[in-house]
């Protein structure tokens, strides 16, 4: 095994790329869960976003349009989840699973004609001065715009949740929907908006995989990234900044195992490929062993305003 072939600068740079989809999806799910809704359909929305973004990207030649359409499709799919869970009061776990199954079927149906095509991808955005820094420049400041956008989105989400009235209302709805309802807040409407945000983020995350990270379409290409995003929300104890840490840690594991595979490590490839999932389980165990800190109190509970 030749460890010297692993370049730390490239490692960090590719870590950020591989973490971005999980970061986006987890951030969306964080907002959804903060409003008290558990949407297990992240995987389905991601893969739908991946193929929708890819299709538009290929047909128009514009990855930006692809991303926008992916966000729209993710949000549309999450609206189905929202209507079912918020208006028709269905079980959130079952509905989320259903959403994943629908998304997987839908994406492979749409994706058949797009197999084996290369898509246009985002150009790297050079930041003046910052990109020219030695080592740090190519490591942190030589990425495509979505990487920066995802980090900015983390900061925005944190600020909105912590400092604004809207964030306070969202959190109130997630902690006690009955109290929020009694205060006159439109619980269902607020939750639908949160669900739509989560769907759009998942759509963006999927499109990032199919338009930037790979950039190709293969069936089932998200390979559980949506579920890992759900795990990262738990890992982050529902705090935006920790989502960033969790996603980047996870991206690091993924990139490292890929690099080890390429460097010909004396570990079977299957063991390396399963390591991200095993590490996710290990992290979940460590986090939950400390107790369930920070979970919104009304998470997963059905709200029905009785008179």
């Amino acid at each position: 095994m030749d460890l010297s072939s692993i370049n730390p600068v490239l490692l960090v740079a590719s870590l950020m790329v591989s973490a971005t989809p999980i970061l986006l999806a987890a951030l969306g799910e964080l907002v959804v869960e903060k409003s008290g809704v558990l949407n297990l359909g992240v995987e389905g929305m991601m893969i739908t976003g991946a193929i929708c973004g890819f299709a538009i990207g290929v047909n128009t030649g514009s990855p930006v349009l692809g991303f926008m359409f992916a966000a729209f499709c993710g949000a549309l799919l999450s609206l189905a989840f929202g209507i079912l869970t918020q208006y028709l009061l269905s079980n959130q776990v079952a509905t989320g699973l259903g959403l994943t199954l629908v998304g997987l079927g839908l994406s492979s149906l749409i994706g058949k004609p797009y197999e084996g095509i290369k898509s246009p991808t985002l150009q790297k955005m050079e930041l003046p001065f910052l990109s020219d820094l030695p080592i740090v420049g190519p490591m942190l400041f030589s990425h495509d715009p979505m990487v920066y956008l995802s980090v900015v989105l983390v900061a925005l989400t944190w600020a909105v949740l912590k400092f604004t009235r809207a964030g306070l209302i969202l959190r109130a709805v997630g902690e006690s929907h009955d109290a929020a309802h009694a205060l006159g807040y439109k619980v269902v409407r607020i939750r639908i908006m949160a669900i739509l945000f989560g769907g759009a983020c998942a759509g963006l995350a999927g499109a990032y995989i199919s338009l930037v990270r790979v950039p190709q379409w293969t069936e089932g290409m998200t390979a559980g990234a949506g579920w890992i995003a759900l795990a990262i929300v738990v890992f982050a104890s529902w705090k935006p900044w920790r989502i960033l840490i969790g996603a980047y840690l996870f991206g690091g594991v993924t990139v490292l195992q890929l690099n080890l595979q390429a460097a010909g490590a004396k570990v079977p490839i299957e063991v390396l490929s399963m390591s991200p999932y095993l590490i996710t389980i290990a992290v979940l165990v460590i986090i939950s062993a400390r107790g369930n800190h920070g979970a919104p109190a009304a998470l997963g509970k059905i709200f029905h305003a009785s008179r």
């Binding site: 189905a80 209507i83 079912l84 028709l88 269905s90 079980n91 079952a94 509905t95 699973l97 259903g98 959403l99 199954l101 629908v102 998304g103 997987l104 079927g105 839908l106 492979s108 149906l109």
Partner: peptide, 13 residues
């Protein structure tokens, strides 16, 4: 596959 997923969705609805 989509057909089967839709079935679950409509059932829950």
């Amino acid at each position: 596959q989509l057909f089967q997923g839709m079935l679950l969705f409509f059932l829950l609805a």
